[in-house]
């Protein structure tokens, strides 16, 4: 009986339009975030990744005002912030974190302003919640092509930067004498990072996209001996968390009638749970 209930829910799940869009866009976002996240964690840029996502919310909220596609807004602002951090560039980790924080503060200030305009000029009262915490089931079907295109581009760029990024992570001097343009490669990576976070900001929200970026990657890095394996584990976990989260959120409409549970909550819970579990285990291949 429980099984037949489950099957009927599953049947409805697959046929639901918003669910199909969420599965496609969310899957793309999870995959890109996991791959980019491995390098982000390796390079010690978790804060920068989080900051770009937060700042991208200014673009997300502006796109509501200007009638742009949300993804375009999210990405434009994230790329702008990436450029700002690069222009203010600092070598020392503490100074770099400070610059990241300053850019983050200024960007969030803009988010505050744009959301205020959103709420006063239009009737979109839910703007703050949807931009900051995601709107997985409210994605426009038209975004699927664009989102998957951006995802494919980001994955291709990550593959291209794979070896230079690893060599730089090993030792920047070694990379320099081998002719790698360390700063240019670093900036290219941050732009790819901006693509990744804008995709996940659109799905699970700007301030929560860090979960998809950092969590699966951190698990992969804990478990794997090789970079390729770490990326594969991260990608698998990211997809599992996102698709699992979408399914549970869909199902939750039956748990507490009237109040579905948010997708973002499930995604985060699965990821952090997996991270806690990997802390208990040793390394695999």
């Amino acid at each position: 009986m429980v099984l037949s209930d489950f099957l009927s829910v599953l049947a409805g799940f697959w046929q639901n339009g918003p669910v199909q869009v969420a599965l496609a866009v969310g899957g793309g976002a999870a995959l890109v975030s996991a791959v980019v996240g491995v390098f982000t964690v390796l390079r010690g840029q978790a804060f920068a990744g989080h900051a770009l996502a937060d700042v991208s919310s200014a673009g997300g909220s502006a796109s509501l005002l200007l009638g742009l596609r949300p993804l375009v807004g999210f990405f434009a602002m994230a790329a702008l912030a990436a450029g700002g951090m690069e222009a203010l560039g600092a070598r020392a980790v503490r100074e770099r974190d400070l610059v990241t924080g300053i850019v983050l503060g200024a960007g969030l200030g803009l988010t505050a302003l744009f959301l205020y305009f959103d709420m006063t000029s239009t009737a979109t009262t839910g703007a703050a919640v949807s931009v900051m915490f995601g709107s997985m089931f409210a994605l426009a079907p038209g975004t699927v092509t664009l989102a998957l295109g951006v995802a494919a581009l980001a994955l291709a760029a990550s593959a291209a930067l794979y070896r230079p990024l690893l060599l730089i992570a090993l030792d920047p001097d070694l990379a320099t004498i081998r002719g790698v343009r360390v700063r240019a490669v670093g900036f290219a990576h941050v732009v790819v990072l901006a693509m990744a976070v804008s995709l996940s900001a659109m799905t699970i929200g700007a301030i929560l996209s860090t979960a998809l970026l950092i969590g699966p990657a951190a698990c992969g890095l804990r478990l794997a001996r090789r970079t390729g394996t770490a990326i594969a584990i991260a990608a698998g976990l990211g997809l599992l968390a996102t698709w699992g989260g979408i399914f549970l959120a869909y199902d939750s409409f039956y748990w507490t009638p009237g109040h579905g549970w948010p997708v973002s909550f499930f995604v985060v819970a699965i990821i952090v749970g997996a991270y806690a579990l990997t802390g208990l285990r040793g390394r695999a291949g």
Partner: peptide, 23 residues
């Protein structure tokens, strides 16, 4: 684990709970 990963995951975990409470 790394402190910054710890910070990021704590942040998203509590915020995730926050989205649930808000909903």
């Amino acid at each position: 684990g790394r402190p910054e990963v710890a910070t990021a995951l704590t942040l998203v975990l509590l915020l995730g709970v926050g989205t649930l409470l808000l909903s």
